[in-house]
Design a binder for these strands. Structure first.
Lengths: 212, 212
DNA sequence: TAGATTGTTAATCGATTAACAATC
DNA sequence: TAGATTGTTAATCGATTAACAATC
């Protein structure tokens, strides 16, 4: 079997959860984890867990389950967080600045090395160890620093325009935080993390729970 | 047919996109939109769009498509953003403070009326029009202000504990921003918006695009 | 050994797409 | 009228679950 080529997005989403949980076990010194323990903690079936982990080049052991250190290392490798991903944030509003200041990302290989805004009053102001840069410098920075990920943290009305600029500058992937759909060629990966949309999913879910 | 009872999550996610796009059309004065226009802009098939919209109590018109004002109103109603959802944020770190300061949410009916932190040095400091409150006041505030949504913006290590507190105080739904899985009883809705997990999905997607 | 757990195949379930009659 | 578009049924596709032989 050829491993981890084209794992479905649904499986990749769950792998981020397996990884988070296994990292916790490892930190606590736990050496083994079974598919049923993973399933119970994450609200899945053990079948799904074993099916998912079959995409990965790491085998469990009969009677014991999966060795946590090895599994963590393999999940990290598959997801690519063993690499350094140069990342820039476009939009120095509250959300954009918060991402730059958040430590979680750097710890996982996402090196935020630039923040940009079109507002002249924001350009030059400090955000952590960075200074807000002018949009003119976007393309040059992407090239010179070999930036592969762009985070779109601008209002919905300008999100697609920002995406065009990033794509023209040969970005490889976009994280879209704006409450709008972003179109990109197949060669550029797009992942949505639209918080306002998540809140709407939540309001629907609460309403339908009440109906039952 | 009984409308909008138990619409699948995949459909609800797309509805947030239909809504965002239709709001844009309305703001621009466009009166009609077809399933194929929606499909093309959002990267779907027109079949999916029509199938999705059949869950909603609003009909299109032959030859013309869907009337944008009526569709917007119905999507807003189904998703529940015509209601006011009292919301609190737990965690006054960069991300938590950014959410309080973000205007998008209030515009969509999510009224953030409290922010909490266990760090005594943060308690009392101002975040926009709010002051950071002590965790002691969490349950009381949820009850007195009829808060239904809790946003978890704390480190992964304490996220589940915070969830327990919110659930004990009879919260109805949780938006989880922490990079860990959160367990809740079936009566409490949970939606994940784990940004670090989204970045990992992106790094995997970029890697597999490169492989092709 | 007996029993627990994996890895994998086959069955089920649900979501997406295709097709087309009905409609304006 | 002719043509475009919906709404819905049926077909396809993919993801989840069940089952169980293989393993330690």
């Amino acid at each position: 079997m050829s491993f981890n080529s084209n794992i479905p997005p649904s499986v990749i989403k769950r792998m981020t959860k397996y990884l988070a949980y296994v990292q916790g076990l490892n930190a606590a010194g736990v050496e083994w984890v079974s598919s049923s323990e993973l399933a119970d903690t994450l609200g899945l079936t053990s079948s799904t867990v074993r099916q998912d982990l079959s995409h990965v080049d790491f085998s469990g052991t009969s009677k014991k389950g999966y060795e946590t250190q090895g599994l963590e290392a393999e999940l990290v490798r598959v997801l690519g967080t063993d690499l350094t991903w140069r990342t820039i944030v476009v939009g120095a509003g509250n959300l954009g600045r918060a991402l730059v200041l958040h430590e979680d990302f750097a710890e996982r290989g996402f090196d935020i090395c630039g923040i940009f805004d079109s507002d002249k009053r924001k350009v030059g102001t400090a955000v952590g160890h960075l200074n807000v840069q002018n949009m003119d410098e976007l393309a040059g920075t992407i090239r010179s620093k070999n930036v592969r990920i762009g985070v779109i943290a601008v209002p919905a009305s300008v999100a697609q325009n920002v995406a065009h600029l990033l794509i023209a500058a040969k970005i490889r992937g976009l994280l879209n935080l704006a409450l709008t759909h972003i179109t990109a060629p197949k060669s550029v990966a797009v992942v949505d993390a639209r918080i306002a949309a998540s809140l709407m999913e939540l309001s629907y879910a609460i309403k339908s729970l009440g109906t039952k």
